[in-house]
Design a protein around this nucleic acid. Structure first.
Lengths: 336, 336
DNA sequence: GTGAAAGCGCTAACAG
DNA sequence: CTGTTAGCGCTTTCAC
């Protein structure tokens, strides 16, 4: 495959490569007529500048990376869709890396990206207690723009796109209690992450605001193994001192709760009210329809990407401490 | 910020850059002791070879592209997950591009990728009647390895990973009829694509095999606008000559069908049996649980990526016309 | 086993 | 406005 290069283009045009390069870059120091000639021949040969050569020379490129815990998850898929909507628009290429909730994998990816392949990164961090020093280290070493979204390292000074986790959780809990719940259960991840922590706070404060004494057994921490989660949830929900409502911090725990209720023949919402953070499109079709707090995932991705590209393109742009907070959307359905 | 390069490494080691380069590449012409020294210093400085320089020189890199219609779709998300499982393993970087079912966008992406950024592409084509000549053209010009999956250009000679659409559709239809359906309705996309066409054939052949006279009104073509689809499906299902079962060629039509039945207060499966191609995780939780034919999306992605990398690394020359056919999985649930 | 040197294709001073 | 030139950081002959 012999793809034409700038030298041959220049030769055929009787121009120097630098003139061709400038013409292709629409430089103001090139005459309109020359630009036209160059562009025409370039199109004729379907010439595309070699990005490796150009990136090498310019020491930067139009590639960014997206590092997320998983892709088989409506929230992240939507976020990627949002990111792509702006990178596509601005002619950036988007790499995708999945951490699969592994901090080690996250570090590996970051280490790899230190090679200079990309000009910026959009990240949603994996859960866990391993801290965020690798992000700080990465930044110190590369000075590359980083934007975090949703699951953010709250203690680090980076631009972020998040939602009002605390308040939406507070409101959701209030709904549960106003609907008659005396003993709500908050199901969250055993591995801590920014969103869960905020939501848990919102839950606890709301419970207490309604004159209910908050106790530790109002929070259940679940792990990755869905079979074990199923067993734990079943045990609690089927027990004597069962909760009368469940607030699932993440979607899959609501799904499991539904499964448990189905198997135990427990009526939702009569015996158990349920609400969950979720971006599930079929929430309305579950039986009963699931009440949800959904995050503006697409918009979050879009905002994060816009922020990142702004930082990449304007070196002086001081976005470093920008935090964009978007609103979640609560939909009360038959499960309450 | 100032990342070290090979020249500085070489200087500090008192070696030439070429020796360092070879050592880093684990060349056999370098002594073990030198390799060790080089590797150690490289690690100390956290040195990473600049991929632009290396790719420019070698005229190839370890980047591939994935071009799919959408990402907010469990099937494609799973496929990307499968692809990533092998690219991660083999240290390839994965670009992602979404065509959003637009042939024009698909062409734009392909045109862009002619610049040499990547070493191979995995594609699932958008629906429509615009043909596949841009893939052939792309290949002629770049000679880059291409692997198609699921939605493939059936007439072109490229390696492909598909599933047994025809047979699984045939079997699904038989299930519907054996369960008592006399007048099944196949809901498919108005814009043609490989999978739908095969599934439709399977449906028709199955219908006829059971002594039912196939008529054109047994197939309904729906478009992208879900509101319009809803109206059309509602009209048909609510009419005098309504079908007694629905076979949805793609998931979202089954969802809409459920919605319609819910709103019309039509009992599934009594009044209408439903089966659908779907990778929805909540199929069991819908009311009633949805019978599905699910595709091995993760495996498809994995196979496609393995094939592509093999072609890129030329470990297998014979891959060019390989077609891998995986089996779908049918799960009959309460909707039948 | 190691090194010198020639570029890969492009951009950006700097000249003219 | 256009051309000359010097690399970007790396790989790869080809010498030694």
């Amino acid at each position: 495959m012999k793809s034409i290069n700038m030298i041959e283009l220049a030769r055929e045009l009787g121009l120097s490569v630098s003139t061709v390069s400038k013409a292709l870059g629409d430089s103001h120091e090139i005459s309109a007529s020359t630009k036209k000639r160059v562009l025409e021949l370039a199109k004729k040969y379907n010439y595309k500048p070699n990005p490796f050569a150009s990136n090498l020379r310019k020491k930067k490129g139009k590639q960014i990376a997206v590092v997320i815990p998983e892709i088989v998850n409506n929230f992240f898929a939507l976020a990627v869709d949002g990111i792509e909507s702006v990178t596509r628009d601005k002619d950036y290429d988007t790499f995708i890396y999945l951490s699969h909730e592994s901090a080690e994998r996250e570090r590996t990816v970051l280490g790899h990206l230190e090679n200079g392949l990309i000009s910026g990164i959009i990240i949603s961090v994996c859960s866990g207690r391993e801290g965020y020093s690798h992000f700080q280290d990465f930044y110190e070493r590369t000075k590359l723009p980083l934007v975090f979204f949703d699951r953010v390292p709250d203690l680090l000074q980076f631009p972020k796109v998040i939602t009002d986790n605390y308040h939406s959780s507070y409101e959701g809990t209030i709904k549960l209690i106003k609907a008659g719940s005396k003993k709500p259960l908050f199901i969250t991840t055993a591995e801590p992450m920014f969103t869960s922590i905020e939501r848990r706070r919102g839950f606890q404060d709301a419970v207490e605001s309604q004159g209910i004494i908050f106790t530790d057994d109002m929070v259940l921490e679940c792990g990755d193994d869905m079979d074990i989660n199923y067993a734990i949830i079943k045990k609690i929900i089927g027990s004597k001192k069962a909760p009368d409502s469940v607030f699932a911090s993440i979607e899959k725990f609501a799904i499991t709760t539904y499964q448990v209720c189905k198997d135990l023949n427990l009526n939702i919402p009569k015996k158990l009210k349920v609400i969950s953070y979720s971006n599930l499109r079929t929430a309305t079709l579950l039986s009963p329809s699931l009440s949800t707090i959904s995050q503006p995932a697409f918009e979050m991705g879009r905002e994060a990407a816009q922020m990142l590209l702004k930082m990449i393109e304007k070196k002086s742009y001081a976005a470093a401490n920008d935090i964009i907070v978007l609103n979640n959307d609560m939909a009360i359905r038959d499960s309450i």
